[in-house]
């Protein structure tokens, strides 16, 4: 009868100690709010009219994914609600149609250059397409070959030439996408892929720029050269593939050996039962 009493006393002294002990290790708050939203999004998301439209598409865009926020394009002060749209604080608003290429071209310098020299760029302000005609504005996604499609191109002209350009790009684009996927897989294994990633990014960027020229002959010629570059990259990636294959072989041996040892021990144990 004495024992339970003693034990109860124990509980009282141990419990608070443990509570403190376990606290710091076992608690994690949610991450939401770790990165504050700009006043632009706070206010616009709450609106009901036109003003709210850009928020959702932007959130799903490649710009949002890379931390490019409203003020990075439209200017203004994203931290001060009162002056967020004050021109004195650098607010630019939305560009006029003819200003769109220079609006986007502040960051996408090279693309702007090529675009302005192309048939598309020369028709700027005379019914020609701007950046957003094909890429959209707030909803902008990573550029893919699918941007060239009959529905989109035939808004202005016949699809024939665009189809030829797309066909010329198809194989090269496929190679680039495949190499990109492979690099991504390597990276997940802790393989240092930085140089490959940057090399491929540069190649892809040059390749996508090329398209803005809308010059089929040049695209066909340059595509061959770029395919050569990607093929060279694939060569280096193949070396890694080979090394990974060897690792798997060694891994198979290690697993097999451990299993054999386990079976051996088990059988040896059986002889003593």
């Amino acid at each position: 009868m004495k024992t339970p009493h003693r034990l109860r006393a124990n509980t009282g002294t141990v419990a608070p100690f443990l509570f403190i002990l376990t606290l710091p290790f076992l608690t994690l708050p949610p991450l939401a709010g770790a990165q504050g939203e700009s006043v632009c999004v706070q206010c616009h998301a709450a609106q009901s009219g036109r003003g709210a439209i850009p928020v959702k598409p932007w959130r799903e865009s490649i710009h949002a994914a890379n931390g490019i926020s409203c003020s990075d394009c439209h200017g203004g002060d994203p931290k001060d609600a009162a002056n967020a749209m004050n021109p004195a604080h650098g607010f630019l608003g939305a560009p006029q149609e003819v200003q769109i290429p220079s609006f986007c071209g502040r960051c996408h310098v090279g693309i702007k250059e090529d675009y302005l020299q192309s048939a598309h760029g020369r028709a700027l302000g005379k019914g020609g397409p701007t950046c957003v005609t094909c890429h959209g504005s707030h909803e902008v996604k990573k550029a893919e070959l699918e941007l060239i499609n009959e529905k989109s191109c035939s808004r202005c002209h016949s699809y024939d030439r665009a189809a030829r350009i797309k066909a010329a790009m198809q194989e090269t684009e496929g190679m680039i996408v495949a190499a990109d996927r492979k690099i991504h897989g390597f990276r997940k294994l802790g393989i240092e892929t930085d140089a490959y990633e940057k090399g491929l990014y540069s190649t892809r960027n040059r390749y996508h720029r090329l398209f803005h020229d809308v010059d089929t002959a040049r695209i066909v010629a340059e595509s061959a050269r770029i395919r050569g570059e990607v093929a060279r990259l694939n060569g280096s990636l193949g070396v890694i593939d080979e090394a990974l294959r060897k690792r798997k072989l060694a891994g198979g041996a290690a697993v097999g050996l451990a299993l054999l040892a386990g079976i051996g021990c088990y059988l040896l144990k059986k002889t003593y039962d």
């Binding site: 198979g252 299993l259 003593y272």
Partner: peptide, 26 residues
């Protein structure tokens, strides 16, 4: 030797599982 062999069996089975993760699905 009896239970030590059981321990060793368990450890090796564990190691097989462990290596499978290390080499095939890290």
């Amino acid at each position: 030797p009896n239970y030590l062999l059981q321990d060793m069996t368990s450890i090796f089975v564990y190691l097989a599982f462990f290596f499978a993760v290390v080499f095939f699905a890290p």
